[in-house]
Design a protein around this nucleic acid. Structure first.
Lengths: 360, 360
DNA sequence: GGCAGATGCGCAAACGTTCGCGCAACATAG
DNA sequence: CTATGTTGCGCGAACGTTTGCGCATCTGCC
């Protein structure tokens, strides 16, 4: 017969003459159960408020848990229940502050919901397979993707493993839900604003290929102005970055007066900033010579040096919606994919040369 | 004798007349062990390259793992070994792009090291206790903090649980290591650059209280210019944000000509941007009327409209160092705390009015 | 006094790894 | 041909939860 040295180690029915207090371990459900004189399962249920446990017992155990500073081990829960409480996040390039805002908002909202964010990938590069494996290894319950690019491999993994995916600021793909701003409507609103002031010749600083968001905005704008009888806007590729907007502004500035547009719509604020700075360099005044409008509603758009008219994406609502969609699908994986688009707020500032009021 | 239909499901001797093919599960070590005809422990060891397992067996198991698409369950590993592979991240405000750059760099570098980033907190607000609990629940192996503020509660938890902490861009606190840019040296470099051009009257757009980084930069600059016999610079509080820099520029612009400084050092680029925009609004030309220099080396500092002289923090090296320090302490918790400061690169651009070359 | 149904809780088997021992089998030395 | 190592691998417990059953005890009813 062996004597045991570490009592913490043998928590199932053991004698107790052993006590060199070897580095007190964290309290576990077992600790609590012994302390409370009930079974571990009872503690587990009591802590989640299972009504099968009497209110008194629940209260007592709750007490005890607080006293002993009990914190559940997520890994044990994950292992046993298959639910990790982790949301995998794929986030776009650091060059566009919108993603930063989005991430911060997501972090803020996720915590109170008992979700934690595990960063799977950040930036514009491709997603390595080894990175995508984190999805499986950590058994993420769901996945939030905001990248402009197509994280196809990740999507595939999620689909194959029944991990719900919600795209934010991006159109849904196969096996994913999505929440976006109403890009078509927002862009049309911007177009109308410009049309109302009599602007008739437009340019769009768009973005190349793969961004669904950019395409929608472009389309919404173009449709609106052509319906109003204007010519199809000149199109410039701003590559979704500041520098692209800047360069396109220089190109626009170099246009012969006859072809020069009266207003420029940059499909994202970050490009609009570049456009504004480019125009300023060339001595083109905004909004007198040319109006400029953007889309996203970045905080920086409010800076006096930009004072940019834009459509503000309802970030808080979008994130909130995305998380609840995820939550719903985690609870009920059979829920069909869903796409919601939320209307942003038109924020009229100096750059559009319109009377400045906020409207919906 | 029973035939098995779904070997994945009942890997411990069980009968099998039950199985409406219940959704093939992921391969586990047990699956592999049966398939390979060895014990689970052997598989475990083989997969980590334990030399006690013969090379042939290792190869065979490696093969098999690939074939069956085996991916380890992190939660099981965590539970058993106490090591999660997770690094908790506390990140500062979204208003300063530096933190975004830092985060992206960390994500990039962490993955190849087998570390994943769990976001504990983002933004400038206080850290809620419930949030800090994630550190324990998910058993993070280490913690990376970049916030300007003092995440005291988190530090306490980490210290109490032996979780190593590395501060980045922040001075070490009790029970933490740190890696920073050499703020004193960098600021002094900037000061010398300005002095060399004969500037003698200075202002510093500093930051309030709690930022060790800001304080060091301020001190480095002030010491250098006062040693050179200049008066102590005027001090303005830019609150570490763009708007603060902007407002301070307006104040500086409003100064009587006799008191107006010949150069302004904003202790972070984001404030320098505000300063530059403020000066432009007031018609003050940079660098002719006033020189402006910043610190951080944000990508935006290179924009033509700013063209800001600054000290570029060696982000890649800093993150790399931070992660390896963390890794070392995860392996050997007894390692003493350590502080390393890395020298940044002075990047001379137009805003300082100096001949433009890069120097170390 | 016997029975049906609540009510409140316990038992024990998972979940997938890791790791300390220990045990064969084979080789080498004495 | 017995001691003594190696080499290569298996046993089984432990990590902390969750969860499907099932079993007492109690209440109320006929």
């Amino acid at each position: 017969m062996q004597t045991r040295v570490h009592s913490e180690l043998c928590y199932r029915g053991c004698m107790d003459e052993l006590p060199p207090p070897p580095a007190a371990r964290r309290a576990t459900i077992i600790t609590l159960s012994r302390e409370a004189g009930v079974a571990p399962s009872t503690v587990s249920r009591a802590l989640k408020g299972d009504t099968r446990i009497s209110p008194e017992t629940r209260a007592r155990i709750g007490q005890l848990a607080k006293q002993l500073g009990y914190t559940p081990h997520a890994s044990a829960r994950t292992l046993s229940s298959g639910r990790s409480g982790l949301i995998g996040v794929v986030i776009g390039s650091s060059a566009n502050p919108f993603y930063t805002e989005l991430l911060h908002e997501a972090v803020r909202q996720a915590a109170p919901l008992g979700m934690r964010l595990l960063i799977i990938h950040a930036g514009s590069g491709p997603i390595e397979n080894s990175t995508a494996d984190a999805l499986l290894q950590y058994q993420v319950d769901g996945c939030l993707m905001t990248s402009v690019e197509l994280p196809s491999h990740v999507s595939a993994i999620c689909a194959a493993n029944g991990v719900p995916v919600v795209m934010v600021n991006r159109v849904a793909r196969l096996n994913s839900s999505a929440v976006t701003c109403d890009n078509l409507f927002g862009a049309a609103q911007l177009a109308r604003l410009l049309l109302e002031q009599g602007r008739r010749r437009f340019a769009v600083v768009r973005t190349s290929a793969s961004s669904s968001t950019g395409q929608e905005r472009e389309r919404g704008f173009v449709e609106q102005v052509t319906e109003a009888g204007c010519e199809c806007p000149l199109l410039f590729d701003g590559r979704s970055i500041y520098e692209g907007g800047y360069e396109m502004a220089l190109q626009i500035a170099a246009l012969p007066a006859a072809r020069r547009p009266e207003a420029v719509f940059a499909v994202s604020d970050i490009m609009a900033f570049g456009v504004l700075d480019g125009f300023r360099l060339r001595g083109i005044s905004v909004p007198q010579d040319i109006a400029v409008v953007g889309f996203d509603g970045l905080p920086a758009a409010a800076r006096p040096c930009y004072d940019l008219t834009t459509v503000e994406q309802p970030l808080e609502a979008m994130v909130s919606r995305a998380l609840s969609m995820l939550q719903a699908r985690i609870g009920r994986p059979s829920l069909p994919d869903e796409t919601v688009s939320l209307r942003g707020a038109l924020i009229v500032r100096r750059s559009s040369g319109a009377p400045q009021l906020r409207s919906k």
